[in-house]
Amino acid sequence: MSNLVIVEHDNNEIAVATLNAITAAKQIGGDIDLLVAGENCQTVADSAAQIAGVATVKVVDNAMFGHHMAENLALLIADVAKGYTHVLASATTFGKNIMPRASALLDVAQISEIVEVKSPDTFVRPIYAGNALATVQSSDVIKVITVRTIKFEAAASTGGSAAIEPLTYGSDSGLSSWISQAVSGGDKVELTSAGIVVSGGRGMQNGENFKLLQSVADKLGAAVGASRAAVDSGFVSNELQVGQTGKVIAPDLYIAVGISGAIQHLAGMKESKVIVAINNDSEAPIFQVSDYGLVADLFEAVPEFDSAL
């Protein structure tokens, strides 16, 4: 067996999610190579070579890969993948965008968002917003996989000494071009890697009230999240959304404030180690999954909680 893991990066740093995908590759077994495609991305290749357990880092440094456009990247992945039995990427928007396209070019199925490796050809993945777990066996020669990061520890980012192998590759398809990226949040704690997350729902009533949660989050070193109801109501922007259609996270502590606990929200946070729910409706479904529930008016409870920290 031989694994190729597609490295997600911004031409400077490797995304932590890639380290989780490498751990999934280790569980599959066999050699692990990495593919770094980017523009002026030598520092990424150098750090990738330090990751424990990696044999070879293949690097394609070309302006056409600078923004990871799917059309070019999928062609590259499909080409390099032909020497491997398994091709993996993390199930982030990066992996979700490119991997199915590469699968189609290889004429193989993709196994999305695996949460467990049963054997080199058998994997467990959640379906129906995590309300069911399917064990699936692949008959394809090349298995294309995206990895749900919260279910695999991050591989050690040091201790390895992989060979770096530069590749040259093809020409720009010219099908798409990058224009801009609006990154909100600034220096705030990132939702997917935060140890503690404080999330607000429809009960927050407006975006201004999210300051109450931000204050708590600042004290706890936590990230702020939101339910789809809060995002759809325009209180906060979508990258804060936790749920089936947003981010799936598993922090040590998840504090759900004014969130009723719709199925699709639970899908994004029920793997958290400790769940706290603060809601004035004692019948809210969120209390069925919370370790500690507080039935209270959030506008009284949250400031009190804040000052007690």
Partner: peptide, 16 residues
């Protein structure tokens, strides 16, 4: 290309 071997309910969380 995939054979579904089994579909199960995930372990539930019990209310605290």
């Amino acid at each position: 290309r995939l054979t579904v071997l089994e579909v199960v309910e995930p372990e539930g969380r019990s209310a605290g």
